[in-house]
């Protein structure tokens, strides 16, 4: 495991922000750390980097205890936390150069990073004049500068335009697939995680509600039959009487749990025979978005 925590707890005053968190981030994964704003994501990341001191539990990175191996661990971690930390009075290149001094990285690497995040053109412009997206890209370049084995990114696509988001996503996928990196990425947007993560952890109110591979999450997601018809309410009653489970009804459509192709055909026939016109009928995967909401909105047990 690249990241492993056990019973990690952090209290902010009397409020528990992170509750007994046990993360398992395997090597070579893109671990999506998902949760609504204020769920405790940034706090967890700061605990992982020892910027905050945990009150309970322990943290292991690369199977090493953090406190005893701080420098060795940090030399293999690149991070971007909240807004990128950039000196506004320096140019993009100088920001990287400054970090290169601290990490003893060559100048060549600075240029490589600039072109990787497509900032070569703006490299000699003061970063206070950068757009949010440019700052974010520079932040990612800073995190990647030391060629770390583990990248910890806190909402890295904040402020990026759709093209920028796609580029970052492709970059992270390449890093994992070709350079054997591990990426721990937090987000409040499921759509973003869904498109790149191999593993996912869902956190809400400081508690880990789900952790596993992406496909496990998809497996919980139950398929539905989406039916557009006349008089949806009566149609729903008819289906209920015939032992179908109606999930959702509104003026224009209703949804029923999916059982099989044949059953879907039978639903169609049943509705037609009873005088309902079926405009459309098809199988849908319950959106992960909805599932995410279900998971995070369930009161904590």
């Amino acid at each position: 495991m690249v990241i492993q925590t056990e019973g990690l707890t952090f209290n902010f005053g009397s409020q528990t922000v992170v509750k007994s968190l046990s993360l398992q981030v395997p090597e070579g994964s893109i671990y999506g750390f998902l949760g609504p704003n204020g769920a405790g994501k940034t706090t967890t990341i700061k605990l992982l980097l020892n910027l905050l001191q945990s009150q309970e539990g322990n943290i292991k990175l690369f199977d090493l205890d953090f406190h005893a191996n701080r420098q060795e661990i940090l030399s293999q971690v690149g991070s971007l936390i909240e807004q990128p930390a950039i000196y506004g009075h320096l140019t993009g290149r100088e920001n990287l150069q400054n970090r290169a001094i601290l990490l003893q990285v060559s100048k060549k690497r600075v240029d490589e990073m600039l072109s990787l995040v497509r900032l070569s053109q703006a490299a000699d412009k003061k970063t206070s004049k950068y757009s949010l997206g440019m700052k974010q890209r520079l932040g990612i370049a800073l995190a990647l500068l030391s060629d770390p084995k583990l990248l910890i990114l806190d909402e890295p696509t904040n402020g990026l335009d759709p093209n920028g988001i796609i580029e970052i996503r492709e970059l992270l996928k390449t890093l994992v697939a070709e350079h054997n990196k591990t990426v721990f990425i937090s987000s409040h947007l499921l759509g973003e995680i869904e498109r790149m993560a191999t593993h996912v952890g869902i956190i809400n109110n400081g508690e880990l509600l789900f952790q596993g591979e992406m496909k496990d999450l998809e497996a919980i997601s139950q398929p539905l039959v989406h039916i557009e018809t006349t008089n949806t309410v009566d149609a729903a009653n008819l289906l209920t009487k015939n032992n179908y489970t109606v999930i959702d009804v509104n003026d224009s459509y209703l949804s029923v749990t999916y059982q099989s192709k044949e059953k879907t055909g039978q639903i169609n026939t049943l509705l037609n025979q009873n005088g309902y016109t079926v405009y459309s009928i098809y199988k849908v995967q319950k959106y992960l978005e909805k599932l995410f909401l279900d998971i995070t909105q369930t009161p904590a047990k």
């Binding site: 020892n50 910027l51 420098q71 661990i73 940090l74 030399s75 807004q83 930390a85 950039i86 506004g88």
Partner: peptide, 15 residues
Amino acid sequence: HKADTWKSLFSLPIA
């Protein structure tokens, strides 16, 4: 303080 860089300074592999 201005650049919000304490967090990155203290997550460098430097004591």
